[in-house]
């Protein structure tokens, strides 16, 4: 091969390699944009919110005076709603996943259910709010209550729970099921005693991820008519008389953390921005802790179970 064309080829290779390096730098820069935004967001919230973060924030009701305003009604509301959401989304989601993975025959009905779950995951969250407004608040007459909000968020995270539970169930090897059948177990016994316990880690991870999504959802909860200013707590779930628990809090009006933050953000007085930032910090920390727990559980179960 003549000297000249080898030179030509070398130059071409060098040029292509240069592009490789350029792209690697562009890739790192793109990643940095995302991560720097995240950092800027955390710092901004922490600096702005610092003067308000303290014990008093958790123990005070919202108020007209920014220094006195707190998130008591908001975090209580969020906690109660998450209870309702978890209590309705988990059984429904896991049952759907068990049906789709273990029982469903391959027919058009199953196909419809599967396509439907995928599509539901893409429905804008505010549309769930409209569904809840029309169905739970007015048709079923639950009113603008904790029950309505909890059920709305449960429907919203149902696809997340179903998809992750299905993945977890699918990861259980078929040999486990066959061993159970060989010993004479029925399908349900196999599912209850073997498949579900082994897939518990994945199901928990998916559920917590779903709940961490629900905790930050604002729009659907506003749509069903959550109040933005609540200076009282729902009725206590404990009562003096037998059976010592009461479910009347389900029907009480409520507010939640993201709505409280939104309310403070949209106030014209600049002092309320500190309250908004403080609420944002608490909300972020809640989301972070939930995601952390989910990742930890996934890690633990992965390590413990070796097929």
């Amino acid at each position: 091969m003549p000297e000249q064309s080898i030179d030509h080829i070398r130059r071409m290779i060098a040029r292509h390699k240069l592009w490789d390096h350029i792209f690697a730098i562009v890739g790192i820069l793109s990643l940095m944009v995302g991560i720097l935004t995240l950092l800027a967001l955390f710092t901004e919230l922490a600096i702005e919110g610092a003067p308000r973060i303290g014990w008093k924030l958790f123990t005070s009701f919202p108020s007209r005076h920014p220094e006195k305003a707190g998130i008591l009604s908001a975090w209580v509301g969020t906690t109660l709603i998450m209870l309702v959401t978890a209590a309705s989304a988990v059984p429904l989601g896991v049952a759907s996943a068990v049906y789709l993975e273990e029982y469903a025959r391959k027919n058009w009905l199953t196909a419809i259910i599967e396509i439907n779950v995928t599509n539901l995951a893409g429905v804008p969250s505010i549309v769930y709010g409209l569904l809840a407004l029309g169905l739970f608040v007015y048709k079923l007459d639950f009113g603008q209550s904790i029950l309505s909000a909890g059920l709305t968020l449960a429907l919203l995270i149902l696809p997340i729970v179903i998809v992750s539970a299905r993945e977890a169930i699918r990861a259980v090897p078929g040999s486990i099921r066959e061993a159970a059948y060989a010993l004479g177990a029925t399908k349900w016994q196999t599912v209850r005693d073997h498949v579900l316990p082994y897939s518990l880690g994945g199901i928990l991870t998916g559920t917590i991820m779903g709940l961490s999504r629900a905790i930050g959802e604002t729009a659907p909860v506003i749509t069903i008519g959550a109040l933005t200013f609540i200076a009282f707590l729902p009725q206590s779930p404990f009562s003096d008389v037998f059976p010592f628990v009461s479910f009347r809090w389900l029907m009480d009006p409520f507010t939640v953390m993201p709505i409280q933050m939104f309310n403070w953000t949209s106030r014209p007085e600049a002092a309320f921005q500190h309250n908004a930032a403080a609420a944002g910090v608490i909300l972020l920390v809640m989301t972070l802790i939930m995601n952390g727990i989910a990742i930890y559980i996934r890690y633990r179960f992965r390590k413990r179970i070796k097929w």
Binding site: G34, M261, L283, L284
Partner: peptide, 24 residues
């Protein structure tokens, strides 16, 4: 190392992003 950070970015509640857009 990077992937959890990206997941975190996706998990930030949108109302917090709204505040960030308006104030920052």
């Amino acid at each position: 190392i990077i992937k959890p950070f990206l997941e975190l970015l996706g998990a930030v509640p949108t109302v917090v992003f709204g505040y960030f857009a308006l104030i920052f």
